[in-house]
Design a protein around this nucleic acid. Sequence first.
DNA 1: AGAATTTGACCTCC
DNA 2: GGAGGTCAAATTCT
Length: 277
Amino acid sequence: MSLFRDRDCQVVINMIEHQKALMVELRGMVIPILPSDNEQAKLALQLLGDILSCSDKAISMLELGGDTNKLTNIVGGKRKGDKHSMDNHNLEEEAKESVNKRRKNAEHTGSTVAQAPHNDGHQWRKYGQKWISRAKHSRSYYRCANSKMQGCPATKTVQQMDSSGNGTSKLFNVDYYGQHICRGDGIANPCVVDTAYHSMEPINQTKCNSPTLEHEAHEVQDERFENLCMLQNMPEYLIEFELERAFEFTVNSPLGSEHLMFDDSIRCEQSPICIWG
DNA sequence: AGAATTTGACCTCC
DNA sequence: GGAGGTCAAATTCT
């Protein structure tokens, strides 16, 4: 039995996805100010990860509607022919083990699902990319930018998920391995780039909402692309993501490409990195 | 020129 | 032997 109609489900899914994006942004802001050697800080990060994980499960449940068999699979982990009376905890542990066949030297420290696996408070260097069997998208491997200088063992993998339900947004599965032991100089604050002043500054909601930017919003799409400014070291998946957002914006604009007017506050809310010309 | 990314080869685990 | 993770040379970028 389905409690929601499809349209209602989609509204809820969109709201949860928005919530997830906000949580990722919050995480990126919190990580730089948390003490790295504090147990409570680790717990706080774990909780943030758990919240994101719960949101992902909720979306999956809504997408599957009333299919209770599928829902059981999501909530209880991967289960193989669940006719036997084994308890869910053991099965969950078994599922985790089967996923973590390798990486004996690095503990799995968390995972998130993000619309853009961008700024999580640290700088990363890509060291590999692999096409994973039965996956539509390749998996990228990153290690902490301080791995050479400070021997930081933290790594992460980023993989675009097969689908995100409504088909209009990409979701990336980000897995973290190992703890950061590097010091603060590897931490990247979420930044926006204002090409008018060529300066970098932290994300500022007030600035995003600034009415002084309104006239710039009327510029034609090509000029916006000319002025499109990416952060230095921005990974290719994020560049692709932002470009696709820009194209979606053009396609979906009710005013057409000559009278582009968009709400900067919405863009800033939905994307942790604001881009304007 | 140095840094960052890409990509094929190699290694490890099951 | 296959799949996933890492290395390192080649390539691209700044």
